[in-house]
Design a protein around this nucleic acid. Structure first.
Lengths: 196, 196
DNA sequence: TGTTGTCTACCTTCTAGTAGGGATGCTGTC
DNA sequence: GACAGCATCCCTACTAGAAGGTAGACAACA
């Protein structure tokens, strides 16, 4: 363990990058082996099958997301600010490396052809984000910090859909700034202070 | 030609269904052969390579879309109605077969790993939809038939992103009705008549 | 007679996955 | 401290099957 990351972590990180680029069927153990610098067979030692690998990846992805949200909630109370930070996180990811894309958004588009174990984890991720955003919308509505035009749950789903769709557009146009441009009016609309 | 469809058309139709399920890397010539009822080699007679096949598919997809929009514009003038029909088209697609998904939205998520020829066609599709929606937004704004909160182009991109994101969510939850539920407030917001 | 469409048979390369060997290092026991 | 035993990790070498693609024969047809 001379490195900061274990081999298993390096494998997961490589798989994440590869999935963000081409989805579940868009990468192979050989690709990972090339990046990490070990042999294909060694990957099977850490993750017996591809399903194991991707299931673990998505599971950790959700756990990291849950931890990140928990930490965020401790520092930031304002619901509108939380939504802006959430959108800003993705804006930054997309602009930095131009490639990044929410692993789960990408996998969700392949859902019908995904191994069941992986599909279940992807659905769990969607439920997690949806639940969190709904709670933010509810608080915002109660506190008057957000101006909702429909029920919190629907507003949360619409917001998440905007984020995912904007990612897609940014990728399609090869224009990272498109993400922020699409999200801006959505956030504006949710802001309470503006008097028309 | 005993059938209504030529073999080439059947191949394209099968490829479409398969791509809607698992994307570019999620299907093979063997899959198509199985559906159409011919041998792998026969597919190569119609489409020498997989790239040829998918490029043709996406190109036709856009042409059909352009023709559909042109026909629609002749029958419907009201911009809000056009947006509702556009959203309704996808809502119906998703609810009918539960699997359908805009081929180009799905391919866009795989963009970085797509063959360049296919990627170019996918981008062309996004430009087409964006251009059309922008023109609808512009007209709607001028006529007072739509209430925009930002520039027509941005509003068009945001609308398209909502549609794509809503497709993703509907797929992730396995709940087709989620699509309409997400789009409803978006359409409501664009409606001019409502007086708060 | 040439064109079109399909077939069988084959090729190469890539796929996930397996078997088993060799090195390293930790741990309990004398 | 020495050593046996064991787990960890990575390796080479391999498999079976699937991938996209090719060559060439055959039949139907205009």
């Amino acid at each position: 363990m001379s490195n900061l990351l274990t081999t298993a972590d390096e494998i997961l990180a490589s798989a994440r990058i590869l999935i963000m680029s081409g989805g579940y069927n868009g990468f192979s153990y050989a690709d990972i082996a090339g990046i990490v610098g070990i042999r294909k067979a060694s990957i099977h030692h850490h993750f017996p099958s591809k399903v194991d690998l991707v299931r673990t990846l998505v599971q950790r992805y959700r756990e990291e997301g849950e931890a990140g949200v928990a930490a965020l909630e401790q520092n930031v109370q304002d619901p509108l600010e939380l939504l802006k930070i959430y959108a800003g996180y993705w804006a930054q990811c997309i602009e930095d490396a131009s490639r990044p894309f929410c692993v789960c958004a990408l996998l969700a588009s392949e859902l019908p052809s995904l191994p069941p174990e992986v599909a279940a984890e992807v659905r769990a991720f969607f439920r997690f984000v949806s639940t969190w955003l709904t709670s933010v919308m509810e608080r915002g509505s109660q506190q008057g910090a957000l101006r909702l035009s429909s029920e919190p749950r629907v507003e949360a789903e619409a917001f998440m859909a905007s984020v995912h769709g904007a990612m897609l557009s940014a990728r399609a146009y090869g224009a990272p700034e498109m993400f922020a441009a699409i999200l801006a009016p959505t956030l504006e609309r949710l802001s309470p202070a503006v008097v028309q």
